[in-house]
Design a binder for these strands. Structure first.
Lengths: 336, 336
DNA sequence: CTGAAAGCGCTTACAG
DNA sequence: CTGAAAGCGCTTACAG
C-alpha cells in the first residue's frame, strides 16, 4: 500500500529540496536538467500537489462558485461553462450548493472567504443586505451572476427588455386577457425586472390588468398557478417566468382539455432543449447561460490581474418562436 | 477592511489558546464558560475555520465526488442528493467535473487523493484499467456509482433487468421490427448490460435481429441514430438507452411525419420530468437517482466508520407507462 | 479542563 | 540556479 507521496518525497527522490519542487510547479527558475529529474519522479508516482496546502501562497488558484441549486438546467449550463473556462487556465473551481436556503448560502460565502479563494462567483436568487455586507467587508473579488449588484460587479440577463419583448409579442399578436406566472420578488432579476418588462410590454398594447400569480421555481408551482389563473379569469395567454413553469402550464391546460395555442397561448423564458419537443413547440426566450458563465469566469480572472472590468455586463437573449402562441390574431391586428 | 480572522485571532480575543479553539470545533473538552467566550467571538466575526488547513488532522471531513458532466438530469439528481446527505452530517462535498474526458477524470481522482479527502464517490461512464489501478493503490475508501466494480464497492442501477423489462414489454405488445439506440460499450452499465437486457427481453418474444445504433449521450446523437435506423429498415419501435436519446427520436420521427406510437413506438430510460410533457407522453423506465446518491453517501460514511457495507447495492427502478408505445397489438397478442 | 510544542504539505523571501 | 529557514492555519499528543 504505497503511502501518499508529498512534495518532500518527490524532492528527495529527485535529489533536490522541496523549495525547488515547489518552484517547478509554480513557474519559478529550475534548470532544465533538474526539471527533467523532477518530472520523472512525478510521472512515476502520479504526484499531484495538494492545492489546499498552499496556505502561505499569495494566490490559491481556487475560485469559489456559489449556486442556489444543482438541479436546474440554467445552473448546470452556467457552472459547466465556468468550470471549463477556469480549468483551462489552471484554476480550480470549488462549487458550493446552497440548496435554495439563504442561510446556507451566506454560510457558503463565509466558508469560501475563509478558504482563501482568489475570487467568488455567486449566482443567487436573492441579494440581501447580508450578502452586501459580506461582500463589502471582504477584500476578495466577487462577481454576482444573474442579479443586479449596484455596489459591485455583475453579469446579468437583460430581464427587463426580454420581458418587454415577450409582453409586446403577446400584445402584438392580439391577445386580450393575459395571465402571468412570476416568481417571488426577493429574486429581483426575475421576480421584479422580468415581470416589469412583461407588464410594460403588455401595457403598450393596452393590456393593463393581467392576472398575476407567484410561484417557486418548480414544475408543481407552475401547475398550481395555472389553475389559480384559470379559476380567476378566462385568459387567452399565459406568460411564464421560466420554461419549467410553462411546463406546468402545459400540463394543466392539457388536462383541462384546453388547446394550445387555439384556446390559450403559452410563452416561457429559458430555451431548454426539451421545450422544442413539446407539442406545440414552446415559444420561449432563451438567455445565454453558457455566455454568462464564460463572462463571469473571464471577469473574475481579469479582476485578479488588476485589469479593468465593466461594472455591469448584459448577456444576450434570443427569441425562439415555437407554435405555442396564436398568431392568427396578428393578421387581424395588422389589418385593423 | 477587516483582515481575515484566523483561529489564532479568535483564540486571542477569547483569551485562550488556539488549541482550545480547535478543540471547540472538533468536539474536544472545553469548559462551558470558555466555550461561551469563544462562541461570542466567533459570532461577532463570522469566523469559520478553514476546512482545508486541517493538514494534520486524521480526518478531513471532505468527501470528493467525481462526475462525468454537470449537465445532465441524472447527475444533477445524484449530486444534489449526495451533497444534502453529507452536508447534514458535517461533511464537505468537493465536486469534480470531468467533462466527459477520461484523462481529466483520472486526474481528478489523483487530485482528490492528494487532497486527503476521506472518501471518493465516483460516477463514471467507464471503468478502465487505470481507474482500477488507482483505486487499488489508494487507501482511501472509494464507492463507484452507476458502474459495476467487482473489485470494490458499487451502487448500481439494475441495468440488465430494467433493459429486459423494456425489451419484453416491447415484445409483449406485439412489435416485430425494433431499433435500439445504445451508447458506446466502454460504458459497461449502459452500453453493455442495459443493451443485453433489452436484447434478451426482445429475444424472449422472438425478436432476434433488432437494428442497432450507437450514440454519445446527446440530443443530436439521438437524432442521428434515429435517421440511421429509419434508413436501414422499417421499424415499428425504437428503444432508446436514455430519455435524451428518445427526445432525439421524437424530433426526427415528427419531422418525418411518422406518428408515435401508431407508426413507431418509442421507449426511453430516465424518467425525466419533461418526458411526461411530450405528446404522446414518453413511456420510460425511471431509475432512482436520488436513491443512488443517498446510498452512495451513506455507504462511504459507513466505510469511514469501519462499519460493514454491501459490496454491491442495486437501486430500484420504476416503469412509467406513457402513451408512446402502441398497445393495440397487445390485444392481438393476448387473443392469438 | 487548557496550554506549549511539534508538525501537516506547501510557499516564499533571502542567501549564496 | 538552488537550499535553509520561517511560516501559512490548523490539529494533536503530551503535560500539567
Amino acid at each position: 500500500m504505497p503511502k501518499k507521496i508529498t512534495m518532500a518525497d518527490v524532492a528527495e527522490m529527485a535529489g533536490v529540496t522541496k523549495s525547488t519542487v515547489s518552484r517547478f510547479f509554480n513557474g519559478g527558475y529550475v534548470k532544465k536538467s533538474t526539471r527533467d529529474k523532477i518530472q520523472k519522479v512525478i510521472e512515476q508516482y502520479n504526484y499531484v500537489p495538494n492545492t489546499f496546502a498552499r496556505l502561505k501562497a499569495k494566490e490559491s488558484s481556487v475560485i469559489g462558485v456559489v449556486v442556489p441549486t444543482l438541479n436546474s438546467k440554467v445552473t448546470s449550463r452556467v457552472i459547466t461553462s465556468i468550470d471549463r473556462y477556469l480549468r483551462e487556465r489552471g484554476y480550480t473551481t470549488l462549487i458550493k450548493n446552497s440548496d435554495h436556503d439563504i442561510d446556507l448560502e451566506l454560510q457558503n460565502i463565509q466558508k469560501l472567504i475563509h478558504l482563501n479563494v482568489d475570487g467568488i462567483l455567486i449566482s443567487s436568487i436573492a441579494m440581501t443586505k447580508d450578502h452586501k455586507k459580506i461582500f463589502e467587508e471582504t477584500q476578495i473579488p466577487v462577481v454576482v451572476l444573474a442579479q443586479d449588484y449596484e455596489e459591485g460587479i455583475s453579469i446579468i440577463d437583460d430581464d427587463y427588455n426580454a420581458g418587454k419583448y415577450v409582453g409586446e409579442y403577446i400584445g402584438k399578436t392580439g391577445h386580450k386577457k393575459v395571465g402571468y406566472i412570476g416568481v417571488y420578488e426577493t429574486d429581483v432579476a426575475v421576480g421584479l425586472h422580468r415581470k416589469d418588462g412583461v407588464l410594460d410590454g403588455l401595457k403598450a398594447y393596452g393590456i393593463v390588468e393581467p392576472v398575476l400569480a407567484k410561484s417557486d421555481y418548480s414544475f408543481i408551482g407552475g401547475q398550481k398557478c395555472t389553475r389559480e389563473i384559470l379559476e380567476e379569469e378566462k385568459v387567452d395567454a399565459i406568460i411564464c417566468a421560466t420554461d419549467r413553469l410553462a411546463f406546468g402550464a402545459y400540463k394543466v391546460l392539457q388536462e383541462k382539455g384546453l388547446r394550445i395555442p387555439e384556446d390559450v397561448s403559452v410563452v416561457g423564458f429559458g430555451g431548454y432543449d426539451e421545450s422544442s419537443l413539446l407539442t406545440p413547440e414552446l415559444t420561449t426566450l432563451k438567455f445565454d447561460s453558457y455566455g454568462m458563465g464564460y463572462l463571469g469566469a473571464e471577469t473574475i480572472l481579469k479582476m485578479l490581474k488588476g485589469e479593468p472590468v465593466s461594472k455591469k455586463q448584459i448577456v444576450e437573449y434570443e427569441f425562439i418562436q415555437g407554435n405555442s402562441v396564436k398568431l392568427e390574431d396578428l393578421k387581424d391586428y395588422n389589418k385593423g
